[in-house]
Design a protein around this nucleic acid. Sequence first.
DNA 1: ACTGTTTTGTACCGATGAGTACAATCTAAT
DNA 2: ATTAGATTGTACTCATCGGTACAAAACAGT
Lengths: 204, 204
Amino acid sequence: MSGRKRAFDEVQALNAAMYTFWKKGFVGTSLADLTANMGINKPSMYASFGNKEDLFLKATQHYVTTKVDRVLSTLDQQGISLRRRLKAYMVATITVQTEGEQGLGCFLSFCESEVIGENIPEAAKQEVERLSQLPHQKLKQLFETDPESIVLGLDKRSSISAQTILTFLKGCASMARSGTSSDKLVESIDIILDGLGLGSRVSN
Amino acid sequence: MSGRKRAFDEVQALNAAMYTFWKKGFVGTSLADLTANMGINKPSMYASFGNKEDLFLKATQHYVTTKVDRVLSTLDQQGISLRRRLKAYMVATITVQTEGEQGLGCFLSFCESEVIGENIPEAAKQEVERLSQLPHQKLKQLFETDPESIVLGLDKRSSISAQTILTFLKGCASMARSGTSSDKLVESIDIILDGLGLGSRVSN
DNA sequence: ACTGTTTTGTACCGATGAGTACAATCTAAT
DNA sequence: ATTAGATTGTACTCATCGGTACAAAACAGT
């Protein structure tokens, strides 16, 4: 005997919550912000998602599945040179960071910067830190196992190579958040790949 | 007829306020945080610094004069190759970002990331945005006027070159804030400078 | 139509946010 | 010693924070 029908779409509401946290962070987002953007009121939110921290964790997961995973999958493309795959990955990252009217950067990177401020609950902190490591692991492994990478000798510098790319991309996130356009950020990609010793930017 | 003596050092208190904002941001810092770290109580704070926003503006200025200006001055060193000057600048930046027990990254970069969240007063927002542009202008001008840069043809790519360096350094700020050590970040510098076409990393 | 169940809206809770009133305290000049 | 001026500590203000109680509203099955 089910009761009154839910008057909102849960996925849509979660999506709105994700963008709210993405824009304002965990600390800067109030329940009033959330309910306004989600189009629901507090009791509905608490009934569906738990509390602010639970909602944040679900929004974080939603970000990973709808954004991060898609971007990371560009590294698995077949029949494309390593350099092109890396470039596609970096372009895809920047595209996410600059999407919408106002670029928001990286959800995880921004929220991770709040962690040290001690205003974030423990579980959320650990989850953000855990998820932030995934790209590094994937990139490092790519440099270690990819045949082309081994030929170039990059497998011996896998960690620093991965880290340099991610440092650059985190910088892009900051830049995007302060208004730098996608085009300008993309321009730097070839410079980074050149520096890593990934061959010429014209041929590969 | 001056009254009771001030029982705290104003500069010292401002310094404590700077580190508090640096760690927790404008939004995440409460007056309780501030007064606790500054070692004074609220009326003293309001009498000396105005209000939270005024204190933030003064802390920001304090950051610029004690940190940013020092770092930028490394670019003005004489008798050193362009590559070495840029490297010194980047190392100095990373040193500031990773100082202390826990690296805090870049005060300006972090606070700028809060701006878009709409929880920052207008004046503070504009000041943070204004100050964030200074390094780009300085670097761009360096690439345009430095003789060595002109020989290398970098004057024709001054803007993108400056932006690439700053994007990388903003990434270092994020990395530092999430615990990456100074050593690891410094390792990437030569890769970036190589990519920019600043000659060999061994000779210059 | 009635009943049990779920969602919704309103109105609240205690805690904490920024900011201030005011009296007690201290210091320097007279 | 007294007085005037400035700083200090305590105790407030009002608004907003995250979270909830509760009754009205809307449904499904009988």
